[in-house]
Nucleic acid binder design. Sequence first.
DNA 1: TATGAATGAGAATTCATTCAT
DNA 2: CATGAATGAATTCTCATTCAT
Lengths: 197, 197, 197, 197
Amino acid sequence: MARTTGSDGIRTEEAIRHAAVELIAARGFEAMTMRQLAEKVGVQPGSIYRYFPSKGRLLLDLLVEHLEFLVSRWETEQPRDADPRARLRAFVDFHIRSHTLRRREAFVANMELRSLAPADYRRVVALRRRYEDILTGILRAGVEADCFRVPDARVATFAVLAMLTGVGSWYRETGRLGKRELIEIHTQLVMQCVGAQ
Amino acid sequence: MARTTGSDGIRTEEAIRHAAVELIAARGFEAMTMRQLAEKVGVQPGSIYRYFPSKGRLLLDLLVEHLEFLVSRWETEQPRDADPRARLRAFVDFHIRSHTLRRREAFVANMELRSLAPADYRRVVALRRRYEDILTGILRAGVEADCFRVPDARVATFAVLAMLTGVGSWYRETGRLGKRELIEIHTQLVMQCVGAQ
Amino acid sequence: MARTTGSDGIRTEEAIRHAAVELIAARGFEAMTMRQLAEKVGVQPGSIYRYFPSKGRLLLDLLVEHLEFLVSRWETEQPRDADPRARLRAFVDFHIRSHTLRRREAFVANMELRSLAPADYRRVVALRRRYEDILTGILRAGVEADCFRVPDARVATFAVLAMLTGVGSWYRETGRLGKRELIEIHTQLVMQCVGAQ
Amino acid sequence: MARTTGSDGIRTEEAIRHAAVELIAARGFEAMTMRQLAEKVGVQPGSIYRYFPSKGRLLLDLLVEHLEFLVSRWETEQPRDADPRARLRAFVDFHIRSHTLRRREAFVANMELRSLAPADYRRVVALRRRYEDILTGILRAGVEADCFRVPDARVATFAVLAMLTGVGSWYRETGRLGKRELIEIHTQLVMQCVGAQ
DNA sequence: TATGAATGAGAATTCATTCAT
DNA sequence: CATGAATGAATTCTCATTCAT
């Protein structure tokens, strides 16, 4: 069969992305095979190569797309003129929402950096750095405005991000805690952590 | 042949463990090949099978050994009768020390759980659970004694562990911060995080 | 899309032939892919199949066309009633002209016989045989007329053809020697070779 | 079965070389698959890679080995102090003997240059050039000593080599002509060709 | 006439593992 | 205890070809 009626390129590409994120999240990038991916999508392995020139490039695309989504979405959503406390609250809310909504993408973006080719790695780390810098900026502003008390803004950035990102690895939509409660709990933990007055 | 006359099995086994941890930490378990491992050790690939019956079993051994070390070492070190605040301080100190000293082992134990066969996975997760429970116990005691203020002891456990464990992924012995400073900074962050009075 | 509105089938077919000869001459038939060919022509791979039912058939067409051109052109050009010496001179002139003018076609026809399917191979070899026979005929006539001295007309045919055809593999239009000189040099070599009086 | 009793590395490598030459001569390098090669040798495809790191490297080894054999064997055999006529006779004899004895190797070395990677190509062409230079040297010496009459020593080199090498593509041990006759015939053709007095 | 999406078979290569020596 | 030769299955990726539109 040359083409299944109704299928088309964009749909197939989207299906590949989606299936890839699921498989990589579940087994890891190296452990996922193109055969498994193809089977999940419902195409032949060779067909994937119409959309992604290599397995490595597929991973790169996934990570870049996710990180660009994070950065650009925050640009839109952020309460630009609020005080550091409100901005930190907004950040926690934003981070947890995006890391539960796109849980698998976030997980993959955190776990699979080392599976990238060196040049790709540098590119993605630079992108991730831009996201980290958002939080560092908020913390520094808060320290200067005397409303946060952290010993080292950079270390605190890593600490808070690790804390928040970790949620994605154990959160289940059907679990004990809803998304709302999760956000409340982590807002409190983070605000205490940075010594918010 | 890198093998020195007079070297023996135990030395070789130790060399395999060591090399494996380095390779897995750098590239991931799936990406490490038995050939690379053998080359690093200075033996032929077949020789590894004298010591470990399979690649998967090697990973299991590494993780179990690390987690058992953590749990048993804490059993020895912990200040059993101190108040929750002192115990939490001791835990932070212990965790950061062991996660910088045995940085690669800790990193592997955190990243490669999903590379385990299902039965092995369950076994290792149970072990890890014992370590988590130590912290949950301290937090619950602190909440009851009114010296900590956390909204959910289990979530706070994950949050604090994520925060502390994250250190291992960016800490370098030659970096800006020494181990002593790292412990001080994280002690403050953690104490604030749990709302210690 | 490289296709100009108004271009049509014949133009496309010619473009495919031309591109195919270039690619096969440069890389070999097996090494040329239909995708490369399509790209060079400026169409999609599928489109080639409007003109040639298969890759193998395309090769066959190219070889048959070239060999038929050689034989029929000689039929037209040859100085039918001249003496063997003049006819051999004419043959050298004709061969070198056609093997420099259509250098790539000639090269492909010499190198890619073995890439043909068995039945196609037999057909093309028979055609080539007709061309070889022209030379053998001239040599035999010369030997009988006592103006050539060759030990074995068939071997001499192969020897002279190899000599002349070899030119196509190193001749460059921009090289040290012009086409005229090439013909003169080879005429002398061939005439000496067959012991022309 | 881990190892067939009696087999060993050197024997296997030799068997691979031998089978590869046969297959490449028959079908061409690109058309030969590693599977076919393995089957002919009687091993699994993967086993070939213990001896040759890639298909391309196998080809390179084959060509280099053949050309080095040619050059070094001539160094040993050549009648160094003879006059140009005798030396040319010796060269024809040597060339035909080595191109019928190692017919397939010679054929492959002539046909598959273009299948080499660019760097390998340059290396092999340089080697081949050394062999060509032997003949050019003899021809030039003959021209200077007034015993040969060729219009251009370089072109004559190509012509003579093409003539002699062509033998390998049609010679069969079971054919009409024996090796001795072949040498005689070609000696006469070549001597005439260069206008030997 | 040409496209673009897809196939299915097969390519080179890699890898964990085995085992006679 | 260790080697080195080999396996067999799987991996990523390519390619000629098909066909609905």
